[in-house]
């Protein structure tokens, strides 16, 4: 059970003066149960790649298979395959349209052709996942909510489709730290409970280091690095620098400390790992 991207290339506005190659011969396989982060600087093709995964864009050459089915095909099979890949766009709250939170979240599952009882159950569980109380929010207008709540409604709208693969394009952009942490905590819960694949597009190396098992680094429409998160940050630091991609703050701080003579051991990518390593090096106990 996986998404297979086979050699796709994509050109925006082909055969016009504004032609621009956004993807160049990208091949990758993403398995169910993986948490993958796609990183890369602006314009590297991250979002374009993501939009190919559920057939929103048709590759100029190459093909994308979800569980073995070509997503760009016609017919019910391909449609079903596309519904297996949920996509949360940047600023997803800008796509809310319904009169009530309930109706908006139910939009996706209804389009998949589920019966009313299943839809109701899907909406309830999706709202639970994003931590919105059903009794309080279901009948309210989505436009009368706060920014963080609107985003959670929008994410719930995608989660309610019960996708096997969930793509999130910068889900934390423009949110305060508290809402951000809440969204990620919920995301990790769904990820673990449903054994789905999560594909996170992000500019924050901290998020990538904290949550992702696997890292895809894009640059100039090409997939440059594909590997385990800790390996990529530790082994490919020079390449990352060349691709204008940062490393996590904790990683930089650990390097600085090591240069100053503090013997830190192990892979240090997150704050928690850094704290632990310092405590160990200093011989503090109780940490």
């Amino acid at each position: 059970m996986s998404i297979d991207v086979k050699n796709i290339s994509y050109t925006y506005m082909a055969k016009t003066p504004f032609e621009c190659q956004a993807l160049d011969q990208v091949s990758v396989t993403i398995n169910k149960g993986e948490f993958v982060a796609i990183i890369g600087h602006t314009g590297s093709g991250k979002s374009t790649l993501a939009e190919h995964l559920n057939g929103l864009l048709h590759p100029t050459t190459g093909a994308v298979y979800v569980d073995g089915i070509d997503v760009n095909g016609k017919g019910a099979d391909a449609k079903k395959a596309r519904h297996q890949v949920g996509m949360v766009f940047q600023y997803p709250e800008h796509q809310l349209f319904a009169e009530t939170v309930y109706e908006d979240i139910a939009f996706g599952p209804r389009n998949s052709g589920k019966d009313p009882d299943t839809v109701d159950a899907a909406v309830r569980s999706a709202m639970e996942f994003v931590n919105l109380d059903f009794a309080t929010f279901a009948q309210r207008s989505p436009f009368a909510l706060s920014g963080g709540q609107m985003r959670r409604v929008a994410i719930a709208g995608v989660v309610a489709m019960e996708p096997d693969y969930l793509i999130m394009d910068e889900p934390s952009a423009g949110l305060d730290p508290r809402s951000r942490n809440m969204i990620f905590a919920q995301l990790m819960t769904i990820f673990k409970k449903r054994k789905m694949a999560v594909i996170l597009i992000t500019h924050s190396m901290e998020e990538a280091a904290l949550y992702a098992d696997r890292l895809l680094v894009m640059s100039g429409g090409k997939l440059c690095i594909d590997g385990k998160t800790s390996d990529v940050f530790i082994n490919d630091e020079k390449t990352l620098e060349k691709l204008a991609v940062d490393v996590p703050e904790s990683f930089k701080l650990a390097e600085e400390l090591q240069q100053q003579g503090l013997p830190l051991k192990g892979a240090i990518l997150t704050e928690a790992q850094l704290v632990k390593a310092i405590a160990k090096a200093k011989g503090w106990s109780g940490c």
Binding site: E51, L56, F89, H94, F107, G108, N111
Partner: peptide, 12 residues
């Protein structure tokens, strides 16, 4: 963008 977002949610 909105069209893409809604078609990702199965809008036809």
């Amino acid at each position: 963008r909105i069209m893409k977002a809604q078609s990702a949610r199965g809008a036809d």
